[in-house]
Structures are given as structure tokens and as C-alpha cells.
Amino acid sequence: MKLDDSTIEKRLLHLPDWDYFDNALHAEFEFENFKDCFSAMSRIAFECEALNHHPDWTNVYNVLKISLSTHDAGGVTDKDFKLAQAIERIVEPEDE
């Protein structure tokens, strides 16, 4: 079920790396190098398969841009927040 804007904004308080616009959650992560970025993408891919939910993403060298929305619901749902939280757990160690 699609979430309303105020619910999305409240939930984003727990995900400071993410923004909400164009009916989707968006984040951009920068890594030390391409290898670290691709490694994170591989770990995220396993999480996506487990959740059966897949991002729109692009990668240029060490930067990963991710956009999450639930296409069949026409916007952001719980699935998107679950995947965003999983992505955070994966990329967070890279920032240390």
C-alpha cells in the first residue's frame, strides 16, 4: 500500500541519507573506489533478492545513486523503507 507524504517524511527522520521526491526515495553514496562501491552493490543485490524488491540505481566509478519506489503501488511503500534500511546497514561500515 502506498504511503502518504507525511508518513514518508516522518520515517525519513530515521534515514538521514535519504530524500523523498518524484514519488520515490533517493540516496547517493560515495565509496573509496570502484571496487568498494561494486562490493556494496553486490551485497545490496542479495538483499534485494531476499526482499523481492529491486532498486533503480546507477553507478559511476565510486558513486552509487539509488532510487526506490514500488511501481505496482505507484509510489513509496513499506517495501521501500525495508530495502532502504537494509542498504543503510550495508553501506554504513564503508563510512567508518
Rank of each mutant, 00 (worst) to 15 (best):
S6D: 04
S6Q: 15
S6L: 04
T7F: 00
T7L: 05
I8H: 08
I8S: 06
I8K: 06
K10I: 03
L13P: 00
L13E: 08
H14A: 15
H14F: 02
H14M: 09
H14C: 04
L15C: 00
P16M: 08
P16H: 07
D17M: 05
D17I: 00
W18T: 02
D19C: 08
Y20V: 02
Y20L: 06
Y20A: 00
Y20F: 14
F21E: 13
D22M: 10
D22E: 13
N23W: 03
L25H: 02
L25P: 00
L25N: 00
H26V: 11
H26G: 08
A27D: 13
E28C: 09
E28H: 01
E28S: 15
F29S: 07
F31Y: 09
F31G: 00
F34N: 11
K35E: 10
K35G: 00
D36L: 07
D36P: 07
D36H: 12
C37N: 12
C37I: 04
C37D: 07
S39F: 07
S39E: 11
A40I: 03
A40D: 02
A40M: 02
S42F: 03
S42R: 13
R43A: 14
R43D: 03
R43G: 00
R43W: 04
A45C: 03
F46Q: 12
F46I: 09
F46L: 14
E49D: 10
A50W: 00
L51C: 05
L51V: 01
L51Q: 12
L51Y: 10
N52Y: 05
H53W: 00
H53E: 06
H53G: 11
H54Y: 12
P55R: 09
D56V: 13
D56H: 15
T58F: 13
T58L: 07
N59M: 14
N59G: 15
N59V: 10
N59E: 13
N59W: 10
V60A: 12
V60C: 11
Y61E: 04
Y61M: 13
N62D: 14
N62T: 10
V63P: 02
S67E: 12
L68M: 06
H71R: 07
G74Q: 10
G74N: 08
G75M: 10
T77L: 04
T77A: 07
D78I: 11
D78F: 13
D78Y: 11
K79P: 02
K79M: 09
K79Y: 03
D80W: 01
F81M: 08
F81V: 12
F81K: 12
K82C: 12
K82A: 14
K82Y: 14
L83W: 06
A84T: 08
A84D: 05
Q85T: 08
A86M: 09
A86P: 07
A86W: 11
I87L: 01
E88S: 11
R89K: 15
R89L: 14
I90Y: 09
I90T: 05
E92A: 15
P93H: 07
P93W: 12
E94G: 01
E94R: 02
D95N: 15
D95K: 15
D95M: 11
E96K: 10
